[in-house]
Write a protein that binds this DNA or RNA. Structure first.
Length: 414
RNA sequence: GUGGGUGUAGCUCAGCUGGUAGAGCGCUGGAUUGUGGUUCCAGUGGCCGUGGGUUCGAAUCCCACCACCCACCCCA
């Protein structure tokens, strides 16, 4: 047997209906914020991610699907979309277009990690980027947009965490100070933290080991080190978020794993997701364009929703759409008539399934299994009378109706 | 990459003090003529994850491998 490769999965009906509903809800919210869709290739030159995401990140060093093309060039299945969007922005000189470029995307991403709950090797993201402004006002709107989408998609009680990770001016000083402090307390921390204290001090702040928390709480905060540009930027974002009555929590320990993030970073977490409890992550990336070789600066901010995770939290809340009408066909002569009736009802916007010619009992059974709201019987009696047996499947009530009546009857909510 | 758990019918699982397999659900058909859901009856369906070993005999015991799940790491 050939089956789906590790970490990938088939999405089948009726589950796909939830995906469609979430995506439709997101598109609608994007529209109201004047965001427009961008579709970039799933394949990119490996260099794009190495330079964009960061040579030393886990994503680039051990999680990318990279392979050699037949001409010898190195290609990679995109592990995230921001680098691609920025590449397209630069390549198509979108900086020449009027105003801030507000773009959204949705689609599959690929990372070769060990699969677990809420984590797949092919997973789906819904994301947005606003490129062309360094203003904190854009940050606030971006976060508001993100929260609106989650709400519209049906996510209940999201927790929004916000922080600043500084920039190239102030972050190095903070990391140095952090290292210094960690050197003192490192032996008292968990094994992982002792290692992280050396390799990636910021990650210590992420530690979840309960015993470590008091010590980690004593460590210096990035906010003591924010420079003359980062500090007011963050203050402004914070003010705007509070003005908008968003349920923000300052998380001084929030760090992000991609190199391009600077200043504002944010995340939305949700319980009942298992260990991978982050539904959305994002932040500002003002240096990204230059890292990709752009001559013109292109400050931006964006976020990405883990669609698989979002759907884990909302599936079950949403009911699949029912079949409006099942047409039971009795006898060869009824086939053509049934087809015409079905076409008429479909043109009125209702879903219709037409049975194969056969026994009525079989047809009724199938109508019931498909969850049809109504069944229309088309047989010799109906052909002769010009009226059709129309049955409400929930109540069991049945009556004869004229063909013009059918679509109107379907309006009834039962 | 590391650790733990689980692999028996399409699905959820039982059987595991060794004697070549069961239930519920599903699916198909029947309870006579053009009426579903409830009920009853029958049928369908499994190389018991794979390969070795112990044994007269293995789903059951031992070993290896594989797959899936969960967790670490990291992230969405």
């Amino acid at each position: 047997m050939i089956h789906a490769v590790k970490g990938t999965r088939d999405l089948l009906p009726p589950g796909t209906a939830v995906w469609n509903q979430v995506e439709a809800a997101a598109r609608e919210v994007f529209r109201t914020y004047n965001y427009h869709e961008i579709r970039t290739p799933i394949l990119e030159e490996t260099q794009l991610f190495a330079r964009g995401v960061g040579e030393e990140t886990d994503i680039v060093t051990k999680e990318m699907y990279t392979f050699e093309d037949r001409d010898g060039s190195s290609l990679t299945l995109r592990p995230e979309a921001t680098a691609s969007v920025m590449r397209a922005y630069i390549e198509h000189r979108m900086d020449q277009r009027p105003g801030v470029q507000k773009l959204y995307y949705m689609g599959p991403m690929f990372r070769r990690e060990r699969p677990q709950k809420g984590r797949y090797r092919q997973f789906f993201q819904i994301g947005a980027e606003a490129i062309g402004s360094a203003s904190p006002d854009v940050d606030a709107e971006m976060i508001e947009l993100a929260m609106d989408i989650l709400k519209s998609a049906g996510l209940e009680s999201p927790v929004l965490l916000v922080n600043s990770v500084g920039d190239a001016n102030c972050r190095p000083a903070y990391i140095a100070a952090l290292r210094e402090e960690l050197r003192k307390i490192s032996p008292k921390l968990c094994e992982d933290c002792q290692r992280r204290a050396e390799t990636n001090p910021l990650r210590v702040l992420d530690c979840k080991v309960p015993e470590d928390q008091p010590l980690i709480g004593q460590l210096p905060s990035i906010h003591e080190f924010l420079c003359g540009e980062c500090k007011p930027h963050f203050q402004r974002v914070w003010e705007l978020l509070n003005d908008r009555k968003l349920p923000v929590k300052l998380d001084q320990r929030l760090v992000r794993g991609l190199d391009y993030y600077m200043r504002t970073t944010f995340e939305v977490v949700h319980g009942a997701l298992g260990a991978q409890n982050s539904v959305l992550g994002g932040g500002r990336y003002d240096g990204l364009a230059e890292a990709l070789g752009s001559k013109v600066p292109a400050p931006g901010i964006g976020f990405s929703i883990g669609e698989d995770r979002l759907i884990m939290t909302v599936e079950g809340n949403l009911k699949p759409q029912p079949l409006d009408l099942f047409v039971a066909v009795l006898g060869e002569r009824a086939v053509e008539q049934a087809g015409q009736l079905a076409r008429e009802v479909r043109q009125s916007g209702y879903s219709v399934e037409v049975s194969a010619d056969g026994k009525l009992k079989r047809a009724m059974e199938l109508a019931n299994k498909l969850g049809a709201r109504y069944t229309l019987i088309v047989g010799d009696n109906e052909l002769a009378a010009g009226r059709y047996a129309f049955k409400n499947m929930a109540s069991g009530q049945q009556e004869d109706v004229a063909r013009e009546e059918i679509a109107r009857r379907l309006q009834t909510v039962n």
